[in-house]
Amino acid sequence: MMRSLWTAASGMIGQQFNIDTISNNLSNVNTTGFKQNRPDFEDLLYQTTRTAGTPATEETLVPVGVQVGHGARVAATQKIFTQGSLQNTGNVSDVAIEGEGFFRVLTYDGTYGYTRDGAFKIDSNGQLVTSNGYRVMPEVVMPEGFIRESISISQDGRINVRLPGQDDPVEVGQLELYRFVNPAGLQAVGENLFKVSSASGDPIAGQPGFDGMGKTIHKFLEMSNVETVKEMVNMITAQRAYEFNSKAIQTSDTMLGIAANLKR
């Protein structure tokens, strides 16, 4: 069988994966704190029929070899952790990260998750939690009878509230941020959460605004960093590449048909 059939097929499989990735990016264009995915491709093995540098005569060498490739495959999918735009929500429990870092939350199985989604809530116990009920770590618990609209979060993560009958606010907690040597190595697990992996390295804790950490911006949320125009252009490119590979398969099939119909 012709090698081009399998080579072009590998290209179609790769472009299908590319479209799947683009679709996921576009579907999360309004997901708070979402970071776009980028697929990376690599070429497959080459068949060498003549090696460069092979002696041609006693005094000369072959300047270039003869190689033919076998297509492409997906090498990796990478999260692009560029800053998303900040949106003013006016909600007193919303907080965005401007710069590097993640919030840490405690999941139901007792492990830690890391997120850029600062759409926090205050539960019936006065505790700061995520939309899925995961507790923000270190724990932040509002005092009984606090005035909700008096909540303020400074750029260095200090949380203050005012109590009835008091004019001066009271500090009730401190937000911490965590960064990683290789954030692209974090494992995305859904629910806007990431988990630590051996590739990401251990989390490095710090106070917002210090030691390379980003600042916490109160009453704002970080939106997705997906650029819709760029994703649409990538989709068109992937679609055309898929078509080109399908044309290569059709051409190979036509050539096989011509060979099969040869007569003496």
Rank of each mutant, 00 (worst) to 15 (best):
G209S: 10
I217W: 01
L163W: 09
L163M: 15
Q207L: 14
V196L: 09
R148D: 11
D168I: 13
Y112W: 06
D167Q: 14
A188I: 05
M223V: 06
D156K: 12
S154E: 10
R179K: 15
S197D: 10
D94P: 03
F180R: 00
V136L: 11
I217M: 11
F146C: 06
E227Q: 13
I122D: 02
G110P: 02
L177D: 05
T111C: 04
D156Y: 02
N132T: 13
D109M: 03
E100Q: 14
V226H: 00
A205D: 05
E191K: 12
D94M: 03
R148Q: 14
T111G: 04
D117Y: 05
G165D: 03
D123N: 15
R158L: 13
Q155M: 11
K230Y: 07
V172K: 03
M223N: 10
S198N: 15
E139A: 13
N182L: 10
M223I: 05
T115S: 10
V136S: 00
P169D: 01
G118H: 02
I97K: 04
Q207H: 09
R148G: 06
G214V: 08
E227S: 12
M137N: 06
P203N: 08
G212A: 07
G201D: 06
T107G: 06
M232T: 09
N125G: 15
Y114T: 01
R135Y: 12
S197Y: 01
G99L: 08
R179L: 07
E231V: 05
P143F: 01
D211N: 15
E176P: 00
P169E: 00
S224K: 04
S131K: 14
M213D: 03
F146S: 04
Q187M: 12
G99I: 07
E171N: 13
